[in-house]
Design a protein around this nucleic acid. Structure first.
Length: 895
DNA sequence: CGATCCCGCCACATT
DNA sequence: AATGTGGCGGGATCG
């Protein structure tokens, strides 16, 4: 009785009764229940009173630990309805006991007991991590829901996340098939690849340094670039692809979000991702306006996802401290390596190895699982069910799809781009806010960017950007950039033979100086670039179906981030390798510290403190904006030609805004909004316009389209659902680093393909290939920047653990280095080149040497640099080469 | 008070 | 229209 009383007292809110049983159970509830009345009535009762509840309470009181345990235990069983159990309230005790120990569990209010994470654990406990392949376990949502005593809605939350990782697949209505973690590695691998494409660069950049720096800076890290794209990635796995849902748009948001979220971790060097960063990255929209609420919502969802991932043992919560304070973040504790590579995977759980090395394989593998369709097939999936997603997906799109779809994709693309931009923008804003003025600052300071902005990435670059900005007109400046280092992971640059190395500290080339020579194109850092490539998806796809898709996406997205990354790199690059495993253990402990500290994250936001830092933010902003713009353009690729022209104009005028506006029209709102917002909100950003890039992009796009048109490409072409557009957006910073951007389509399938195979490669390919191949377009601008490179060695990367890193470093350097105090040149007119031609010649505009180009494309093998870098290997890198490439490019650009 | 995130309304998709 | 799905955000809890 005492208990009872207490319990009553306790009361907290009476909890809503549990859905199921409780309520009933107790009728008892005293009428009193005063506490929260809540629905007493009906459900009433809260169980609070339930004996168990009391017990629980007691327990809790006793110790938190206990409580936790209880929770865990909690698994209570559900009761199916209440009834039964209930009847006897009293009995319950017994019952409870019987069933579970804890039983009280439910009752108690504790919210924790009802947490999604716990629920997920219970859910997972029901199925073997590694079920025999033969057995397929089907899961009935209703059944599970009742068993676990929760509403079906909650099960969806869990299943959606699990589905994103392919632990389960939807078979039919209300029916899911349990696959277990057999394919987890593959899935993760795929996501990693996709992530690299999308976010990779960014992350890389960031990350690299991150560790060390990260903590300190706290910033962001990764993701800086968000891209939008996500979908694709997801898609691969998902169903969407095809028609199926493809459309369904929305849906899958949770799944997509989950995948993206995971990607961020996989791409992140530090393996730590802060919620806010992730949220920003994932926010689609751009809108600022919405921002806040949207942001909140996004965060909520991320918590949902995080809870599930935590239950899976893939991540754990940590805190990162930034300047402002600590931010919640999550650290990846799952397998880092994947089958293909290693087998290690395991992580916490030890996942297994994957079996398959690759997707393709996987696919096959999948077969067993149900859904997986075959790899190849593209799809069918939908046909069947919605859900069935083939295993990884793969493929998506294969060949052509209906146009409409394409459009959709395109639209999506656009929207994604926009989103990205938005995201960036937001970030920037935030940063800005903090710093405010970053822009100016930036400009002014451009020089110092010490910090970086969050996403931004582009720290230095930022400066550069700023510099650039200053030049408004300038379209792409060419830069010399120091950057070189970057290399981009993408490869882009790499190629250039010359290179100069930037000053970067690194050794890379050694040449420190920047610039020197190279006329790269730089985009203003700020601006983002997009590269477009032709896609050849098919080829790629074949090769890597998924990848291909990814690429596409990535293309769009990808690059940008890098810039950011670079910055980071500049910071430091400390940890080259991944710390992953090791870290964990210690990390944990340390983690607190570290975690707190570092992570990266977003530092920018808070930049207040350091004035200098501010600049960085600015940059970020800029870039973001740019991105947006670009996106827009991309989005509306409408007329290529027109675009070009426009771009040109823009360039001239610099009208970034214009662009945006224009775009706006073309594109729907987003663009405009962004723009406007930007303007409004952030003054600075808008200003830049990176139109150039945009322009460039546009052109590219066009080019592509046009050229490719024939087939493929252009939007339609692709099957890529995602977009075909292969554009990469690069943050300006990035751009800076790179001299150019190119887009191109990739026409050459082959060449690209090979390279492409790797995701990284893919990325590279995009850019590179694109350039080379087809499109020759190039955008270059004049250079502008000349950074000075400072040679700060900030970063140094050291080794990049990953190839990408390299870039980053480079970038970083550049960024850092760059600050362009003097921007050198600014405004050059931009040049865009378009090339059409499919012909063999790439076209680079001028200068670009075709040969080189080719190299680029192909590079992977040959060059290796670019391509390889990422995936293939990791390291690789040749900075020099990349640099060179850049150089070349740049040089070209000048031309 | 900020971080979490449960809960369930409600819109959209599928039957 | 019914039912399945799942976006979304209010507001309760936790720390």
């Amino acid at each position: 009785e005492n208990i009872f009383d207490r319990s009553r007292m306790a009361p907290k809110t009476p909890i809503k009764s549990e859905p199921v049983d409780l309520s009933k159970q107790k009728c008892c509830t005293p009428e009193r229940n005063p506490i929260t009345p809540v629905k007493l009535v009906d459900k009433p009762q809260s169980d609070p009173w339930t004996p168990t509840a009391n017990l629980k309470m007691l327990v809790s009181a006793a110790s938190p630990d206990m409580r936790d345990r209880e929770k865990k235990k909690e698994l209570f069983r559900p009761i199916e309805n209440s009834q039964q159990s209930d009847t006897p309230d009293l009995l319950q005790y017994d019952v409870v006991d019987d069933s579970t120990v804890d039983e009280f569990e439910k009752q108690r209010p504790s919210r924790k007991q009802k947490s999604l994470g716990l629920l997920c654990q219970k859910f997972l406990a029901r199925y073997p991590s590694y079920p025999l392949s033969t057995e397929k376990t089907t899961i009935s949502l209703d059944e599970v829901a009742s068993i676990l005593g929760v509403e079906r809605r909650r099960i969806y939350d869990i299943v959606n996340v699990l589905e994103s990782l392919h632990l389960v697949s939807r078979v039919a209505k209300n029916q899911y098939c349990w696959h277990g973690q057999h394919n987890l590695s593959q899935t993760l691998k795929t996501l990693q690849e996709a992530g690299e494409l999308q976010y990779g660069e960014l992350m890389t950049f960031f990350q690299p340094k991150e560790q060390d720096l990260e903590y300190k800076f706290g910033e962001r890290k990764k993701e800086a670039i968000p891209n939008s794209q996500d979908r694709p990635l997801l898609d691969f796995s998902e169903p969407d692809c095809t028609s199926a849902s493809a459309n369904s748009r929305k849906d899958k948001s949770l799944r997509i979000m989950s995948q993206k979220f995971v990607m961020l971790f996989l791409v992140s060097k530090t393996k730590i991702v802060t919620l806010d960063i992730a949220a920003k990255i994932l926010i689609e929209e751009t809108q600022d306006t919405v921002d806040h609420s949207k942001f909140k919502t996004k965060v909520r969802r991320l918590y949902d996802i995080a809870n599930v991932l935590t239950s899976l043992g893939l991540i754990k919560k940590v805190h990162v401290t930034e300047e402002r304070g600590r931010k919640p973040a999550f650290k990846w504790i799952g397998p880092v390596e994947f089958p293909g590579k290693t087998g290690n995977l395991d992580g916490p759980r030890g996942h297994s190895p994957t079996s398959d090395p690759l997707p393709g394989t996987q696919r096959g593998a999948c077969a067993p699982y149900q859904t997986c369709a075959t790899g190849k097939q593209r799809f069918t999936r939908h046909a069947s069910f919605n859900g069935a997603r083939p295993c990884e997906g793969t493929r998506r799109k294969v060949s052509s799809e209906p146009s409409s779809p394409h459009q959709k994709r395109q639209d999506e693309y656009c929207s994604k781009m926009i989103n990205l931009a938005a995201v960036c923008r937001q970030k920037i804003k935030e940063d800005t806010r903090n710093k405010a003025c970053a822009t100016q600052t930036i400009l002014n300071s451009a020089k110092n960017p010490s910090i970086t902005s969050p996403f931004s990435l582009l720290p230095l670059p930022g400066d550069s950007d700023f510099c650039v900005n200053p030049l408004p007109q300038a379209v792409f400046p060419v830069v010399q950039t120091d950057v070189p280092s970057l290399s981009l992971p993408n490869g882009i640059s790499s190629q250039a033979p010359h290179l100069s190395t930037p000053a970067a500290s690194k050794t890379e080339n050694g040449k420190p100086t920047l610039l020197p020579n190279l006329p790269l194109l730089c985009f203003p850092s700020s601006s983002l670039f997009m590269l477009c490539g032709g896609l050849q998806e098919n080829n790629l796809k074949e090769t890597l179906p998924t990848t291909a898709d990814m690429r596409n996406w990535s293309a769009g997205q990808a690059t940008v981030p890098p810039a950011a990354c670079q910055k980071r790199s500049s910071h430091k690059c400390a940890s080259p390798s991944a710390p992953v495993d090791d870290d964990e253990p210690a990390a944990k402990k340390q983690s607190m510290e570290q975690s707190d500290v570092p992570l990266s994250l977003v530092g920018p936001k808070k930049p207040f403190e350091s004035p200098k830092a501010e600049s960085a933010p600015g940059r970020g902003c800029t870039s973001a904006e740019h991105l947006e713009v670009f996106h827009l353009d991309l989005a509306s690729p409408a007329a290529p030609e027109a675009a070009d022209e426009e771009s040109t104009k823009l360039l001239d005028s610099q009208g970034q805004e214009k662009l945006s506006q224009k775009k706006g029209p073309d594109e729907p709102s987003p663009g405009k909004e962004h723009i406007s917002k930007e303007n409004a909100n952030q003054p600075f950003l808008p200003q830049y316009l990176y139109v150039q890039p945009t322009a460039g992009l546009s052109s590219f796009n066009f080019l592509f389209s046009a050229n490719q048109a024939p087939g493929a490409i252009s939007l339609a072409a692709s099957q890529l659902p995602s977009l075909s557009v292969p554009c990469v957006v690069v943050p300006s910073a990035v751009l800076a680093s790179f001299p150019l951007v190119c887009s191109s389509t990739i026409t050459s399938p082959l060449s690209s393909v090979p390279d492409g195979s790797f995701s990284a490669a893919a990325s590279m390919n995009f850019s590179m290939s694109g350039l080379a191949s087809t499109t020759p377009v190039f955008i270059g601008t004049t250079a502008v920047v000349t950074p000075k490179v400072s040679s700060t060695p900030l970063v140094d990367p050291q080794q990049p653990a990953h190839p990408p890193l390299h870039l980053s470093p480079g970038l970083a350097r550049s960024c850092s280095a760059v600050k362009l105090d003097s921007p050198v040149c600014m405004g050059h007119p931009v040049t865009l080149l378009k090339m059409q031609q499919p012909s063999s010649a790439p076209l680079t505009p001028k200068s670009i040497r075709p040969a080189h180009h080719e190299a680029f494309f192909k590079t992977p093998g040959s060059l290796g640099d670019p391509v390889a870098w990422k995936k293939n290997e990791g390291n690789q890198t040749r900075n020099a080469s990349s640099v060179q490439r850049r150089l070349e490019i740049s040089s070209t650009s000048p031309d």
